[in-house]
Each structure stands twice: as structure tokens, then as C-alpha cells.
């Protein structure tokens, strides 16, 4: 416990504290504001502890024109995105984790290239193509774009998950009477399920929070972020706070639920056995 050690610890904790506050204070302010009565929003100085709990602001937000509809749209798009992403991403992740094939490493890196192009750059060509294909202003169209965005992460995450399921287990199942697919379904899939659920939630949040493509590719069928961003300039302060809180909610829940599996994603750490 030398002086230098103490100093180091203090500095580390201070850095951690700063980062945590940096992230937490806005969330806290938004959360509090979303549940305080309207009049108090304009008070200054603000109190950190709200005087009393109120659903008035939330009720106002949900009652506003187009909010419920875009909320439902957002859910639909997110569920579609999740389905598409897992249907394509999980098998891809499995293949990368299990099989040696020519260009495997190139594929693992190359899949990130799709994230290199800013959506702003792709927006106009995409809109044109979507209009031509009849996908413009449809929820499926938005879900397809969100799938393209989430897919690289989904592949990387599911690769890590399936790498954590030892190949021996599937081979053992095969020697015990399973076909290749049977071994996957009975052994690899159940073991990967918690991780896959985390990947699914991650995909859901990506879609839920995506605003740019959704705003450009829809006119009447807005998702919630697209709806908020197009109306926010003309909205009162309480609407903004309530909207903000609503957008944060899934991501917050997601983080609490999957903290454990985050290690899988970033580290490729092996599964518990």
C-alpha cells in the first residue's frame, strides 16, 4: 500500500467516476424530467429530487398526435429487423465459428466494411432504389436497412457465442446418433441460446435507436425516432423529455439484462461449462 499505489487507485477511481457521471447525469435528468409535473420543468434552479412523481408528462407525450402509431411502427420494424438479422447472422456466425474455408478471415473483417459508408451518403441512392422497388415508405424497407446495419455486429457476436460452444459437444452428439443438424439443434443451439437472446436484444436496440435512415426512407410510416426528430423542433419541452426517456428505455433494460453476455461479444471468451 505505497503512496504511489494509493495515488494510482485514486486517479483510476476518479476517471471511472467522471465517465460514469458523464453518462448517468443526462439519463438521470431526462428520467426525472419525464416524471415531473409540467410547470416544474421550467423552474430554475432545478432540484435533483423531483417534488412529486407525476405521469402527466408521459401521458401528454403518448397522447400527442402520431406517437402511438410511430411507437407501434418502431416495434414492428425492430421485430422484423431482429428476425431478418438472426435468420441471416446466426448461421453466418456459426459458419465462421465452426468451419475453415477460404477467405474466412477476409470475411470476418470484410463484414465490417458495410459499416464504413455513412448512411447519409447512401441515403439518396437508397431512397431512389426503394422507390423503384416499391419499398419506399414501408416498414419492411426500413427493417431491411436496419438489418444491413445490425448484421455485421450480429455476425461478430454470434461467432463469439458459437466459438464458446465446444465443437466436441456437437461431435459427441453425432457419434450418439444425431445428424449434423440434429447435433446443432439439440446441443449447440440450447447452449448458445442465452447469448443469442443477448444478440437479439442488441439488434432490437440498434433498430429502435436508428433515426437517419428511418427519417429519410419514410413519409407517413414513421418510426418513433423518425417521428420525434421531425417534430421535435416544434414541440414543447415536456414532449422532448418524455420522448427522450422513451427512446432510452429499451437500451437501459437491455444493458441490465445482458451485462453478463457482453464479455462473450467482445472477448470471444469461452462459455461456462
Amino acid at each position: 500500500m505505497s503512496y504511489r499505489y494509493l495515488l494510482r487507485q485514486t486517479l483510476i477511481y476518479m476517471a471511472v467516476l467522471t465517465l460514469a457521471l458523464w453518462v448517468l447525469i443526462p439519463i438521470l435528468l431526462i428520467g426525472i424530467s419525464a416524471f415531473t409535473p409540467r410547470q416544474e420543468l421550467y423552474l430554475w434552479p432545478k432540484s435533483i429530487i423531483p417534488s412529486h412523481f407525476s405521469l402527466e408528462t408521459m401521458r401528454f407525450f403518448l397522447g400527442a398526435h402520431g406517437v402511438v402509431r410511430s411507437l407501434l411502427n418502431s416495434v414492428k420494424v425492430a421485430v422484423l429487423t431482429l428476425t431478418f438479422t438472426l435468420a441471416v447472422g446466426a448461421p453466418a456466425g456459426y459458419a465462421v465459428a465452426r468451419f475453415f474455408f477460404r477467405g474466412r478471415e477476409a470475411f470476418r473483417l470484410g463484414i465490417l466494411i458495410t459499416r464504413m459508408f455513412p448512411t447519409a451518403l447512401l441515403a439518396v441512392p437508397l431512397a431512389v432504389t426503394f422507390i423503384r422497388w416499391g419499398l419506399y415508405d414501408t416498414l419492411v424497407g426500413v427493417a431491411l436497412i436496419h438489418t444491413a446495419m445490425a448484421l455485421p455486429f450480429a455476425v461478430i457476436i454470434t461467432t463469439g457465442i458459437f466459438m464458446g460452444v465446444p465443437k466436441d459437444l456437437e461431435e459427441a452428439a453425432m457419434t450418439l446418433g444425431c445428424s449434423r443438424f440434429g447435433a446443432f439443434a439439440r446441443v449447440a443451439l440450447p447452449l448458445a441460446l442465452p447469448g443469442l437472446a443477448a444478440a437479439a436484444m442488441f439488434t432490437f436496440v440498434i433498430s429502435w435507436n436508428e433515426v437517419f435512415a428511418a427519417a429519410i426512407l419514410t413519409v407517413r410510416n414513421r418510426t418513433l425516432p423518425a417521428h420525434i426528430i421531425t417534430t421535435i423542433q416544434a414541440s414543447p419541452l415536456d414532449f422532448r423529455f418524455a420522448g427522450g426517456f422513451f427512446m432510452i428505455l429499451p437500451a437501459l433494460l437491455f444493458m441490465f439484462l445482458i451485462r453478463r453476455y457482453l464479455f462473450h461479444m467482445w472477448g470471444g471468451a469461452t462459455a461456462e461449462r
Partner: peptide, 16 residues
């Protein structure tokens, strides 16, 4: 599955 064999793996490969 169709060879009439059974195998014991080095890692045991017991299903967790």
C-alpha cells in the same frame, strides 16, 4: 451415427 460406434472424447464432451 450409422457406424455402430461410440466415442469418448479427450474433453469428455459431456453436455453441460
Amino acid at each position: 451415427a450409422k457406424r455402430g460406434i461410440a466415442m469418448v472424447f479427450q474433453s469428455y464432451a459431456v453436455f453441460p
